Structure formats: C-alpha cells, structure tokens
Computed example of a mutant assay.
Amino acid sequence: MTPGAERIRITRGRGGQVEATGPLDPLAASLLRRAGFLTFPTLSGQWVRLPFDMGGEWENEHASWAADMLTAARYPVTVDPTLRSAPRSGAPSQSRPTTPCPSVPAGRHR
C-alpha cells in the first residue's frame, strides 16, 4: 500500500454494531468474512459488520482477529481501541465444535 492510502476502519457504530468501512477489495472482503463479518448491499454500496448480539468479548475477539489478518496482508487498518482484545494465539474460538478430518489408512492414498 502507498503511504497516505485510505485506511480500513473497524469501529463500533452508533447502534452498537461493529462495522468495517473503507476501501474493501476482494481480498480484504474475504479476510473480513473469514473473521466473521457479514456483507449487506445498501443503496450507497455495502454494509460490512459483525453479527448482532454476540456479546462484547466475541465482537472484540473477531474485530481484533480481522485487524490482525488485514495488517498481515499489508492493508492500512485503524481499529477502535475499545475493540482490541487481549493477544491470543490462533483464530478465535468457533461457535460450533469442529470435527477432525478422518485419517487415511497407510497405503490407501494415491
């Protein structure tokens, strides 16, 4: 990104929702989706936000995760300081348990 480029902003809106605004190209939009953000069409473009009523800790965790992924991809990002969660390793916890992939018996793969 060039110095002075417009930043992606992750903020808490007037209604309490966590929103992402700014220049969202396909990669940035994909990273936000991976972090749990939803995209809705509007008359002026799109509205990108986290789901409502998931709890402040969940919202902070996912907003921080999104900011970390965007920063790693070299996007200029500004995050509302109230949305930053404590540093963790790995991705945020999922709302549903994950199942391990079945292993392939030895000699049975191609």
Rank of each mutant, 00 (worst) to 15 (best):
M1E: 11
T2M: 14
P3G: 08
G4T: 01
E6V: 07
R7P: 02
I8C: 08
I10L: 08
T11Q: 14
G13E: 14
G13W: 10
R14A: 15
G15E: 13
G15L: 11
G15S: 14
G15Q: 13
G16V: 05
G16S: 07
G16Y: 06
Q17P: 10
Q17M: 12
Q17Y: 06
V18S: 06
V18W: 02
E19W: 11
E19Y: 09
A20F: 01
L24H: 07
D25R: 05
P26A: 11
L27E: 14
L27D: 12
A29K: 12
S30A: 14
R34Y: 02
G36E: 01
L38W: 00
T39L: 08
F40K: 12
L43R: 15
G45V: 02
V48T: 13
V48K: 06
L50D: 04
D53N: 12
D53P: 04
M54H: 10
G55I: 03
W58G: 03
W58V: 10
E59G: 01
E59C: 07
N60Q: 14
E61V: 01
E61I: 04
H62M: 06
H62W: 04
H62R: 15
A63K: 05
W65S: 02
A67F: 04
D68R: 08
L70V: 01
T71G: 15
A73K: 06
P76E: 04
T78R: 15
T78Q: 13
V79Y: 03
D80C: 03
D80K: 08
P81G: 02
L83N: 03
S85L: 07
S85H: 11
P87G: 00
P87H: 06
P87S: 01
R88N: 01
S89K: 12
A91W: 04
P92C: 04
S93T: 11
S93E: 13
Q94T: 13
R96P: 00
P97C: 03
T98K: 07
P100F: 07
C101Y: 14
S103G: 11
S103Y: 13
A106T: 10
A106V: 11
R108I: 02
R108C: 09
H109L: 10
R110E: 10
R110G: 14
